[in-house]
Design a protein around this nucleic acid. Structure first.
Length: 295
DNA sequence: AGCTACTCCTGGTAGC
DNA sequence: TGCTACCAGGAGTAGC
């Protein structure tokens, strides 16, 4: 399921296909994907907007929108069009969402939930089998994303910061790392991978993590995310594909995720699967010692 | 404060 | 073959 590396990959590959394009029409084939407004209200918000920036924040793809400034509307074509901010589209792929650009003449797929016609004869499509994803317009993207914690690949995410932040909470490590307000962009797969790499148990209590352990965890998270981005994410089922339709290849590097019953790549002990916070969780019982007080 | 359970969804698969 | 039951899970919410 798309986490930070997959979302980053989608944003990078979508960017050259949509940047600078103007939205000429919209279609909402599954209303709830829009997260609230009617199809007509959504259309009014986005139609006529140009896509002025394509970025990522946490697991959101952020398409920044702008409208031609009033004084410029009648300006000669050769002048660079200035845009006034007009909100943003926040795309969250959740489990099965997929964002891609195809010629407008190509028929929409059975799982296309939202489609935006662009002024170059292409259509930006949001497909989503399980309908958990969101394709929402927000007037104020900074406010909408304000609740998110730091980016794990930013300079802010250091061992010292993490140690202090962990000690301010009293929570199990895994649910805390999955909490997007704590640190933004990690999901079930990369948390399992990072905890194994750092040799920390998912049920370890956050306030007991030592400075060296926090340093190890920061290094593990950064290294794993960077490598996963290089490999364009992880594809182990039929869902995640890049906008070009290609699978990622980071699943070949998985240390523990989905490897229950198989030997740990580091020590050879059998990887176990347990449930933590309602999520399938993979650990090596030898590399990741069960903390005291946990049965 | 932090935990668990529940909701949203559907294709795939295990079991019979 | 064809049916049912169950599974995966990110994030929001409710309740303890």
């Amino acid at each position: 399921m798309p986490e930070l590396p997959e979302v980053e990959t989608v944003a990078r590959l979508i960017r050259p296909r949509v940047l600078g394009r103007t939205i000429t029409a919209s279609q909402a084939l599954w209303l709830r994907s829009l997260g609230g407004p009617s199809a007509a209200a959504f259309d009014e918000q986005v139609r006529g907007c140009a896509i002025t920036h394509v970025g990522r924040r946490a697991k959101y793809i952020v398409l920044t929108l702008g409208r031609a400034a009033p004084a410029e509307r009648a300006a000669p074509k050769h002048r660079l069009t200035k845009h006034e901010p007009a909100g943003a589209l926040l795309v969250h792929l959740r489990m099965t969402g997929r964002l891609h650009v195809e010629p407008s003449a190509d028929p929409l797929g059975p799982y296309t939930r939202v489609a935006l016609s662009l002024d170059d004869g292409h259509t930006l499509r949001f497909d989503d089998v399980r309908k958990f994803g969101r394709f929402t317009f927000v007037a104020d993207p900074a406010a909408a994303l304000h609740h998110l914690g730091p980016e794990p690949l930013s300079d802010e995410f250091t061992g010292a910061w993490l140690r202090d932040a962990l000690r301010q909470r009293r929570r199990q490590l895994k649910p805390l790392l999955l909490d997007q307000e704590f640190v933004a962009g990690l999901g079930n797969i990369y948390v399992d991978e990072a905890l194994h790499e750092a040799q920390l148990h998912p049920l370890q209590s956050s306030e007991r993590v030592t400075k060296p352990q926090a340093e190890r965890l920061v290094s593990a998270v950064r290294a794993i995310l960077e490598e996963a981005i290089l490999r364009e994410g992880s594809s182990f089922d039929t869902f995640y594909r890049t906008p070009e339709g290609q699978p990622g290849s980071y699943q070949e590097q998985f240390r523990v995720y989905g490897r229950d019953g198989r030997p740990c790549r580091r020590c050879g002990a059998t990887v176990q699967k347990l449930v933590v916070a309602q999520r399938g969780t993979h650990v090596c019982p030898r590399c990741q010692r069960t903390p005291r007080g946990v049965p």
